[in-house]
Nucleic acid binder design. Structure first.
Length: 865
DNA sequence: GCAAGGTC
């Protein structure tokens, strides 16, 4: 029997499609990468009309992603303009998943392949990534063996229809995605590298380690700054409002009611004119009722919920950021509480059982009553028609969850999704609107009120309810009401507020900036890059850095920040997708345009730089004198703003320092024997890691194997008293390559620190002195011997001994005073973590955990022999 | 260390 491999875009879809096509008769197993499932069954294959074995699996989004060749990785050596031509390569998008390998394994011996990727351009592109991965292991790959399934919803009807009308993948659409990837990469990286290096080399207080540019993030920032500018340029204007109060008397009830009526002209900017109107009104004692009208009105219920609306509601109503909301939604989905949360569609599938969803919720303490009312009270109303994007159905609840079942934010979001769903199948909210029109000396005034006749969906979506207003008194046309007060009120026009996150999402959606899945990422980006901060009410307030950047682009080349740029590029890409333009020529032309823009930008940068100068201080004026430079012997300054660094004003050079939280101090005014720079000591507190480092070597490793950002404990210098050759004790008890090195400054909480991972080994508390005997190793385990000395009265050695020398693993007296742990706050615990230390001491021999340290020492020392 | 796009 022949075999058909079928691939969907994500595991959940593979499961749904397999269940539908096999009529729930498939077996299922976990894939070798731990993320994907493989479902199998036997059934007829429409294109060839033969019985085949089906194998349905999936990828997890893109298999590959585009990047530059490694030779372009060095920011110092690569001129950013080269990035418009530099060679690129496709790399595995998520190496951890080993997706190409997984696909090629599963494709072995398969005769046909059916591609069930999402029916959009990205999906089409993933089709070809999949084909590439299986090309070598499938029996044959041609027009007769490769099929593309085109479906518009995940319903049995659609999926079966797609299976019966298989087509072929669309290379043009896929190529348009290739083009987009390449453009985004080249443009983003060129601008980002250029402006990061330029401004970081000049200013010391920008507090941002990366000044990024991107075709989506920059326009997103642009929206926030545009609003900021509107606020700043707003000039308050004084205007005047006529305020009139009349008295309605209800003889039957023997009651009166005061009514503030609204002037039809609303406001007037000229004081003299306003005073004239007031004087005119004052000529009358009564207001004549011209008309009383009552109209039945409706407030429309919502359309079905999609991702963007969910994010908006979460931000404005629940105070949750879009990223946070989506990660919760994802969890609710995988736990089976809601349907797939990433969708553009706002219309339910025709055969979707809406009432069944209501039935699931009808016993819920919070909204069960409303569900019953819809089901049994005959109030159920057909949902409004929205948009069908052909991707996934709208977001709906899948099963009932009690308040205690989900934690705080998860329940809040779930609560919203359920209420929104119930709202969509509820009647509209109906109310009567009564409007009373008045005439006073020829000027028109109105008073209106709403009275709810049927709350409809607002019963369950309470925040949408029409607030109860004062009832309209029983008044009649022609009646005259006494004017009890008439005055002029002086007010001022006020600026708009800063953009709310919800406004921003709307703007992004409107201009096609990002997609439902990437909108939260772009918003996150502009926050973490320190371009905007989120203030109360989730409003986005741009920082100095964000404002200066956008103003700079506007000065030099507004295209760089305008939202229209993205859509212009997408139009070009659509030509490729439609087969109307050649991939290569569109790409070449667009790259050329942006390269010119880039060159123009870099040669006209003074425009932007002038703005930076106003807001930021030069490197020379930043930081405090700290340690001596090895080249000029003068003091360098420690700049604390991100990225933390040392700057030598004399040499005009900067040097990297550790970026982790912790403190940096001078290390006993000692110098690196290689370059004469003063040594520094970094410590993340008593429980954290600590090490000695040379600021020059830290940025410019003296030995190729040392790498950047390596402290003295990783330095193979043969005689320096801080190198691994003098302070190294043994191989790390956990990681492969690390060596445990004595921290010579850790007195009295002595510790060994791994020079590769976050293991620390605390030993000999309160000892006065600890030294590593770098010439003598333990016969049994090959660790270097350690000598410990205590002051009188402090010793913990047996028999009140004041000093001892031996192996800290094999000598039981010493081993008893050794304790292993992890440095806190530096790394997250490893996945599937191997516990936090194994209690007292690394065990002696035979534990199998420790590696022979001597080889490593020998390797390092070999450099100098 | 850069982008944006999928998704886990």
């Amino acid at each position: 029997m022949k075999t058909v491999l079928m691939v969907a875009e994500k595991p959940s879809l593979a499961n749904s499609i397999a269940t539908i096509l096999s009529k729930n008769q498939c077996s299922s197993r976990k894939g070798s990468n731990g993320a994907c499932n493989i479902a199998e069954w036997t059934e007829n294959f429409p294109p060839t009309q033969e019985k085949v074995r089906y194998k349905m699996t999936s990828v997890c989004g893109h298999v590959m992603s585009l990047d530059f060749l490694p030779k372009y990785n060095n920011w110092e050596k690569t001129n950013p303009v080269e990035l418009f031509q530099g060679e690129t390569e496709k790399k595995e998008a998520t190496p951890k998943l080993r997706m190409p390998y997984f696909l090629s394994q599963e494709a072995k011996g398969c005769d046909y392949i059916v591609l069930w990727l999402d029916c959009d351009k990205e999906g089409e592109n993933i089709c070809f990534e999949v084909l590439d991965a299986v090309s070598k292991s499938m029996k044959k790959l041609d027009k007769n063996t490769v099929f593309r399934a085109k479906f518009s919803s995940i319903t049995a009807k659609d999926i079966v229809a797609a299976m019966n009308t298989l087509g072929e993948p669309d290379e043009n659409q896929s190529r348009s995605v290739d083009a987009r990837q390449e453009l985004d990469l080249r443009i983003g990286c060129a601008f980002t590298r250029f402006q990061t290096r330029y401004f970081q080399g000049k200013y010391g207080d920008m507090d941002s380690s990366l000044i990024s540019y991107g075709p989506c993030q920059t326009p997103t920032l642009g929206f926030c700054v545009e609003r900021h500018d509107q606020i700043l340029t707003h000039k308050p204007e004084t205007y005047y409002v006529l305020q009139v109060q009349v008295l309605a008397t209800n003889a039957a009830l023997n009651s009166t009611q005061k009514m503030n009526i609204d002037w039809e002209r609303e406001r007037c900017f000229d004081k003299d004119v306003a005073v004239m109107f007031l004087n005119l009104i004052k000529t009358e004692n009564t207001a004549r009722i011209v008309s009383v009208t009552k109209k039945e009105k409706q407030k429309e219920k919502p359309i079905a919920l999609n991702t963007v609306e969910l994010m908006r509601a979460a931000s404005s109503g629940l105070g949750m950021g879009p990223s946070h909301a989506m990660s919760i939604a994802e969890r609710l989905y995988t736990q089976g509480y809601i349907s797939y949360p990433r969708t553009e569609s706002t219309t339910y599938a025709e055969n979707f059982d809406l009432k069944d969803v209501l039935r699931q919720q009808q016993n819920h303490p919070d909204w069960g009553a409303e569900c019953k009312e819809l089901l049994q009270g005959g109030k159920f109303a057909k949902p409004r028609k929205g948009h069908d994007a052909g991707d996934h159905p709208p977001i709906t609840p899948c099963r009932a969850a009690g308040r205690g079942e989900l934690d705080g934010d998860a329940f809040k979001l779930y609560d919203y999704i359920v209420r929104h769903f119930i709202g969509t199948v509820s009647p509209n909210c109906k109310y009567d609107q009564t409007t009373v029109k008045f005439d006073i000396a020829g000027e028109e005034f109105t008073y209106s009120g709403k009275k709810v006749t049927d709350p409809g969906f607002t019963e369950v979506m309470k925040w949408q309810a029409i607030p109860p207003e004062e009832a309209i008194p029983q008044v009649k046309e022609g009646e005259r009401l006494e004017i009890t007060e008439a005055k002029l009120s002086e007010r001022q026009t006020s600026p708009p507020g800063y953009l709310t996150e919800s406004d921003l999402i709307t703007l992004m959606e409107k201009h096609g900036i990002g997609t439902d899945a990437s909108i939260p990422v772009h918003i996150n980006n502009i926050c973490t890059r320190n371009y905007v901060s989120i203030e109360s009410g989730r409003r986005l307030v741009p920082t100095h850095l964000g404002i200066v950047l956008v103003h700079g682009y506007l000065k030099i080349d507004p295209d760089l920040v305008k939202p229209t740029m993205r859509s212009a590029v997408e139009k070009q890409l659509d030509l490729i997708a439609a087969g109307k333009a050649d991939f290569k020529s569109v790409l070449r032309h667009t790259i050329e345009v942006f390269k010119r823009k880039f060159i123009y930008f870099t040669t006209n940068l003074e425009g932007m730089d002038q703005l930076f100068e106003v807001h930021f201080s030069s490197l020379a004026d930043s930081g405090r004198p700290f340690s001596r430079c090895g080249k000029c012997r003068r003091y360098m300054k420690l700049v604390e703003a991100k990225p933390k660094r040392l700057y030598c004003p004399t040499c005009d050079e900067t040097y990297n320092v550790p970026q982790q939280n912790g403190s940096i101090k001078l290390h006993q005014e000692l110098k690196c024997p290689l370059d004469d720079f003063e040594l520094l000591y970094f410590t993340a507190g008593a429980k954290g890691t600590s090490f000695v480092f040379c600021p020059y070597c830290y940025s410019n490793p003296p030995f190729p194997e040392m790498g950047k950002g390596v402290p003295c404990s990783g330095c193979a210098h043969p005689t320096c008293s801080f190198g691994v050759n003098r302070l190294g004790v043994s191989g790390c008890v956990e990681c492969e390559a690390g060596v445990l090195v004595l921290d010579p400054a850790s007195i009295p909480k002595w510790k060994l620190v791994c020079n590769k991972c976050d293991v620390i080994v605390r030993l000999f508390d309160d000892a006065a002195k600890i030294t590593v005997n770098s010439t003598e190793a333990c016969n049994a385990c090959e660790s270097q011997l350690i000598k410990v000395e205590y002051k009188e009265g402090k010793t913990k050695l047996p028999g009140e001994k004041l000093a001892a020398e031996g192996c800290i693993y094999c000598n039981p007296e010493l081993n008893a005073l050794v304790e292993k742990s992890h440095a806190v706050m530096l790394k997250r615990p490893r996945a599937g973590g191997r516990g936090r230390g194994r209690g007292r001491g690394g065990r002696g021999r035979g534990g199998g955990g420790r590696k022979a340290p001597k080889d490593k020492m020998a390797q390092l020392a070999a450099y100098f022999v």
